[in-house]
Amino acid sequence: MSGALEAVRDRRSWSKVTDEAPTRAELLTFVSAAGRVADHSSLRPWRLIELRGDDRERLGAAIAKAEGDKKPSTKPLRAPLLIAVVASYKKSKVPRWEQEAVASGVAHVLSLLLDDAGWGVFWRTGSYTRSKAVAKAHGLGKDEELLGWLYVGGKPPRTRPSRRRAVDAKHHVSRLPRKKKP
């Protein structure tokens, strides 16, 4: 089995991670590789924002503001590194949905690379990803949208097997319908 196939089959979400995280240099290596996803017209309609330390507390305050809570959210403190995934739309013949798909592809490939390198990763989204308070905290431009965050940290010892079942591909792959005879 190829290394890529094995990495994809072994991938799982790690909702709990330890306090270790990849260095900035390691992260940049992974991002450089993840940026090779299929990208119509090579627009690179994405960017990533690295959140560590106090950045996570600032995000917690923005989430609280978005949700109308008085206390900062502790969700961003669940991992030592958060990577905000931003769709950064470009004026182009390439439709907006396709540009968002590229940004999502970068995030997914990055999560695979991090997982394969031994890091625990969880992709978190939520209604507040589209809120003004959270967008402002991330410094998003008018042609940008936050797609969520990759929460990254060390993998704790596995206490139980992965709950994710294998995909039965036969239920998801089909052929074009046959033409009906007149």
Rank of each mutant, 00 (worst) to 15 (best):
A107W: 05
W46M: 02
L48S: 01
V106F: 03
V17I: 08
G35H: 01
G3R: 04
K136A: 14
E98N: 00
R9H: 13
K16T: 14
K170E: 05
P95I: 08
P76W: 11
L59C: 04
P72G: 15
W14C: 03
L48E: 04
V8N: 09
L140G: 05
K180A: 15
S2Q: 10
R165H: 09
W123P: 06
A101L: 06
V94G: 07
S2M: 07
K136W: 05
A101M: 11
M1R: 09
L51R: 02
S2N: 14
R160H: 12
G126V: 06
E98S: 03
H138E: 07
R160M: 13
E145N: 06
K170C: 03
I49W: 03
R96D: 00
S92N: 01
P177Q: 09
H172K: 11
W14D: 00
P45K: 04
R124K: 10
R178P: 10
S131W: 02
L81F: 07
E145F: 02
S13M: 10
W46P: 05
V86N: 06
V109M: 08
L147Y: 09
D19V: 15
H108G: 11
D115S: 15
R78F: 11
K181I: 08
H108W: 14
A21K: 11
A79C: 02
G126S: 10
S32V: 01
P156F: 07
L150D: 00
V94M: 08
A64C: 12
K91H: 06
A133L: 10
R12G: 10
A107G: 09
S88R: 13
R58F: 00
K70S: 13
D19M: 13
V102G: 00
K93V: 13
T129Y: 02
H171G: 01
L59V: 01
K71C: 00
D55P: 07
R58K: 15
T23H: 07
G53L: 02
G126E: 04
L81A: 00
W14L: 03
W149H: 08
A61H: 04
Y89P: 00
A33I: 07
Y151V: 03
L77K: 01
K65S: 15
P45I: 03
L82R: 01
A61V: 14
R78M: 01
D19R: 15
D55I: 07
D69E: 15
S41D: 14
P76F: 14
